[in-house]
Design a protein around this nucleic acid. Structure first.
Lengths: 315, 315
DNA sequence: GCTTGCTCTGAAACGCGTTTCATACTTTAC
DNA sequence: GTAAAGTATGAAACGCGTTTCAGAGCAAGC
């Protein structure tokens, strides 16, 4: 199959000229260019992209860290990243971490080893200090609220979004409010608790349900909710899938929505539209698109995206 | 930051010994290994993975072609692929094609250019002949029924699965059956039409609804269905999301399920469980896992996976 | 005592394209 | 007519780790 030097020999030019001809550089005479192209054709020449990567010191590839690829929340972000990557001629190297720190470190090392030119972290478990240490190797974009001088960020203010959902209830005189979180110990759990305590007189730890990510989690939580003697009559739920599981299980157990329990989800996934669930729309696709744009920028940037509550009939 | 030759100089050994020491090869004396490790530490040495890829002629990376990353069907396959890739220490390079042939070719070229060691094609638009041409560059696994000598495959027999769904209706005396397809001109559409004509006396072209991929498509199709004067009273629907959209819109329009229209979906996504939709379970995660295993095998292999119909209350 | 077989090392080749620098020849420019 | 500017090209350096081959040193086997 040959390499660039074989072509050079056959075409009677130097390897430098072959490289220039093949990459469409100016300053190559028409006859030499033709000779190179002919020789390349003849040898069925194919570039070894790894040699290109080595020589150029970049790979036109961006790494994407995400905990679960099959979850729609991350799927939509990834969709936005992928669309923009394609538009700009970049490839994506994805690492599914399951929130395993070792996996996250593995992904960070791709940046250090020059396997990727930049890194987008859609969600993480490891401490920010660890990520900081990698910022010297390439641009890193986090999908979370952050004001960092070396790490870029793009986010929807989860704190405000949660406040908005709570207010939507309290303004309607609903104050017995429960909510769900993904991880009891996560940053956003703390933020939610803080928002809750700011708006409501009393915090009910038993009205906080954790491990809420999937439809099944919603189903499970509805069961736990139904089994309580002193239960909330409104729920702010992590995402529309959990909300869907919760709502459908409540219905199955013969509770009325929103009379027995009002529901607000997040994301505005089409599912919430189909189930008529009130939700806080998050521009996930756009978040991915912007994350990708930021990862290519020289400078560190921060980008807050808007959200809006969509009132449907689950409240 | 230095390279392997700098380390060699400082440690007073050759580059070959540095390479051996750093990669844990045997036959390196303890003192030289220690000297190398110390020098590497001192220089904050980091391997340039691109040089490794070039030297080794492989990248420990597998390419994954998928039309839409944010659709749960592909999300679950990708989840299976990613889980197995992690287990085996491989990285994944994903290309979202939107069924654009140019994008698909772009992805195939990653194999030719040695950017990936193998390729998994979850779904495609381009002709199989085109893909064949790339089989010499590395193992390619297709997620579709195929008996090819140079391309591996892993699949659920869509034809049989569709037949099973149809039989489930006909055995209950239901014969006015419509169905949905993703793309009117696709291979699976032809297969479905064939299966339909084998089991039912008359084929109704107007009872075939295409572009059925998302919840919204299901909603739209329900509207079209409801507007018909002569409409089927049973539907075999591409996947559980479309089925969910269809079912929920039918309910909204005050039709009863399954009395007015019975529904069978595909995938057994948790959503179908929550909505009590009868579905044909497809082992998508496992499909991904096996696809990944196959891509690493020396030999071409073919793998058919089982499906099973799960009877719920939409029929 | 001599052969066989390890253990350990380094030189050099190998994988391969890009880019800088120097050079030489043409064209414009004034 | 000469300087300045542009066009065209090749040699060589550069990016960098892996692996083969040859050889040296040393211990076990008979």
């Amino acid at each position: 199959m040959g390499n660039i030097h074989d072509i050079a020999r056959i075409a009677g030019v130097s390897a430098a000229t072959v490289s220039r001809a093949l990459n469409g550089h100016p300053y190559v005479s028409d006859d030499k260019r033709a000779a190179v192209l002919k020789a390349a054709e003849q040898l069925h020449y194919e570039k070894n992209i790894n040699a290109v990567h080595l020589a150029k010191g970049k790979t036109d590839t961006i790494g994407v860290i995400l905990p679960f690829v099959s979850h729609p929340y991350f799927g939509f972000i990834l969709g936005g990243i992928a669309a923009e990557a394609e538009r700009q001629g970049y490839k994506l190297l994805i690492v599914q971490t399951n929130y395993d720190i070792l996996q996250e470190i593995d992904a960070l090392n791709m940046l250090k080893l020059k396997q990727v030119d930049g890194l987008i972290i859609t969600s993480r478990e490891c401490p920010i200090e660890l990520i900081e240490d990698y910022s010297e190797y390439g641009r890193i974009v986090l999908c979370e609220a952050l004001a960092h001088s070396r790490l870029s960020s793009v986010f929807v203010d989860q704190f405000k979004a949660f406040q908005t959902a709570l207010s939507f209830f309290t303004q309607r005189g609903i104050s017995r409010i429960g909510y769900t979180v993904l991880r009891a110990e996560g940053k956003s759990s703390l933020a939610r608790k803080k928002a809750y305590e700011e708006q409501l007189s009393r915090f009910h730890p038993e009205w906080v349900f954790d491990r809420a990510l999937t439809i099944e989690d919603g189903t499970r939580i509805a069961g736990e909710w139904a089994a309580m003697t002193d239960r909330p009559n409104a729920m702010v739920i992590t995402n529309d899938f959990v909300a869907a599981g919760f709502l459908l299980e409540c219905r199955r157990l013969c509770f009325a929505i929103p009379e027995d329990v009002a529901i607000i989800g997040f994301d505005n996934h089409p599912l919430s539209g189909a189930l008529d669930i009130t939700t806080v729309e998050l521009p996930l696709h756009e978040l991915g698109t912007i994350a990708f744009q930021q990862v290519l920028l020289k400078d560190v940037t921060h980008h807050e995206l808007p959200f809006r509550l969509i009132h449907r009939n689950s409240v």
